[in-house]
């Protein structure tokens, strides 16, 4: 399932720059869940609670995890977090999934606008139009 890199012998080939980012994720190359898109919006949980309502304490977090929690005090999309960390999107998603899984980060899925599912609704389009007119 989840492949692990041999950390003793980092691969160096034409795509060698890819190796380092995945050491940050301890070799994981896919997030636990694939429910993040580029524009899923993330917000750091104000007072994270577990399912029993007990305040959560952040576990052992890596620096990248802490940077994400810091960044997402103001809501930010996956793409923005990835750009801020200077990590590829797929690597960023793995780190985000860790934090969402711990209840430390909240995620909001993008609005459904696909033509196949009827396209964006008129209310949404009108809101976008009004916003653009103010540019």
């Amino acid at each position: 399932m989840t492949p692990y890199w041999d950390e003793e012998e980092p691969e160096e080939d034409a795509a060698g720059t890819m190796v380092r980012p995945y050491t940050i994720t301890h070799g994981r190359t896919a997030p636990e869940r694939d429910d993040f898109s580029l524009i899923t919006v993330l917000t750091t949980a104000g007072e994270p609670l577990d399912e029993h309502g007990v305040p959560l304490r952040a576990g052992r977090l890596q620096p990248e995890h802490r940077m994400i929690l810091d960044r997402c005090r103001r809501p930010a999309a996956v793409a923005e977090v990835a750009a801020g960390l200077d990590l590829p999107v797929s690597v960023t998603k793995i780190l985000l999934a860790d934090l969402v899984g711990q209840g430390l980060l909240l995620a909001r899925a993008p609005l459904t606008v696909a033509r196949a599912s009827g396209g964006a609704d008129m209310g949404l389009l009108a809101a976008v139009r009004d916003g653009l007119r103010r540019l």
């Binding site: 899923t40 919006v41 949980a45």
Partner: peptide, 13 residues
């Protein structure tokens, strides 16, 4: 997944 009520929603072009 836990959803956030306070975050803005996003669309992309």
């Amino acid at each position: 997944m836990t959803t956030s009520q306070t975050a803005p929603a996003a669309v992309k072009i």
